[in-house]
């Protein structure tokens, strides 16, 4: 028994060359184009990128919840405990969802079923995965509610009787109810106001320490990354363009896109300075640019960037980047702004 528990928390999740496409009537939307990720036990990985970069799609692939049709997982492998999740049947997946891997969804307003009491919604997963009867599961659900700071008496209430922040805490309680070994948090604080954001993050950090849960934190907020993550993957147009630990990414930024993200942040020390947003928009995923997908927006881009796709350049044991500037080409980047 003990070894089984130990094994549960020893494992890692590993994504290899994941490709996810959405087929519409006339187009193929390439949402994820060969993503590689690895999360070690007890560690938190930040998955950062703009809206539409493929972060949520990557996360949903782990749970095999990509809506099909239109979405299909075209290629790749996702292993948990060394088992390929894509080999499992739907029934076997149901034993993993909510139990070994669970997810906190982006929008708490729509993530809870409006006609089922909050307590029941938490108890449901517990009842399925822990072989408890209904009243035992309900009791556990009440404990979960208290854990996320909601009085247990409110378990019989419906989602519309809760505020947004409380709903998000209920969503978190659902996700944590079976002590998952991997918790995917998809922008868990985006829908919340700042004071509640801090509370929710604190809560998640505490729980991670208590249960040694691995986490994938999907966000576009670099502040949250700095606060809770151990490693960061920067995602752009369905690919990881830079990956490293916090120090690599924050102190030793390499990819022009990552640099752009940092430049887009307001600078509190220089309040008069203008924001420097990345120019242009995320490319149309049905029609990705040739070569490096970021080159139309990249201030360092050279001709070669529109012709050749960059490959992974390993900069250190922990840090890699996917940019032609690090592949002995004519493209030059000089730490923070200079061209050539």
């Amino acid at each position: 028994m003990e070894s089984a528990i130990k094994e549960k928390y020893m494992s890692t999740v590993e994504i290899e060359n994941l490709v996810v496409e959405f087929k519409t009537d006339d187009d193929i939307v390439k949402a994820v184009n060969g993503v590689n990720l690895k999360v070690e036990r007890g560690k938190t990985l930040g998955l950062v990128g703009e809206t539409g970069a493929g972060k949520t799609t990557t996360a949903l692939s782990i749970l095999r919840l990509i809506p099909n049709p239109p979405g299909i997982i075209k290629e790749g492998k996702i292993t948990l405990d060394g088992h390929n999740l894509f080999d499992y049947t739907e029934d076997e997946m149901d034993k993993i969802r909510g139990n070994k891997v669970s997810m906190i969804f982006q929008d708490p307003m729509t993530s809870l079923n409006p006609v089922i009491t909050v307590g029941e919604q938490i108890a449901e997963g517990i009842q399925i995965h822990q072989n408890l009867n209904k009243s035992e599961a309900m009791k556990k659900a009440e404990e979960m509610l208290e854990l996320v700071g909601i009085q247990k008496e409110r378990a019989t209430e419906y989602p519309h009787q809760f505020s947004g922040g409380m709903k998000q805490r209920v969503v978190i309680a659902i996700a944590l109810s079976c002590n998952p070994q991997l918790l995917i948090a998809d922008e868990p604080t985006t829908a919340l106001d700042v004071t509640i954001q801090a509370q929710v993050l604190e809560l998640m950090k505490n729980l991670r320490e208590k249960y040694n849960t691995s986490m994938i934190m999907i966000t576009h907020d670099l502040g949250i990354v700095a606060e809770v993550c151990d490693e960061v993957s920067i995602m752009y147009a369905g690919k990881i363009v830079e990956h490293g630990n916090l120090e690599d990414i924050f102190e030793n930024t390499k990819h022009p896109y990552t640099e752009g993200l940092f430049n887009s942040l307001p600078n509190i020390e220089d309040r008069k300075s203008m924001l420097k947003p990345i120019k242009g928009l995320m490319p149309d995923p049905t029609n990705l640019p040739k070569g490096c997908a970021f080159h139309p927006r990249c201030i360092y881009a050279k001709e070669i960037c529109s012709k050749r796709e960059p490959v992974v350049t390993q900069l250190s044991d922990t840090h890699y980047v996917c940019c032609l500037a690090y592949e002995n080409t004519e493209v030059k980047i000089n730490g923070g702004g200079l061209i050539e």
Binding site: L63, L65, D94, K95, R97, G98, F105, N113, V171, I174
Partner: peptide, 27 residues
Amino acid sequence: VRQDYIRTAKAKGVNKKVVIRKHALRN
């Protein structure tokens, strides 16, 4: 069935048929 809470139910590991019967139909 396209609503987020249906996805939440599936992510809990609820069997597909139960999702339809318990979560979707009533809504």
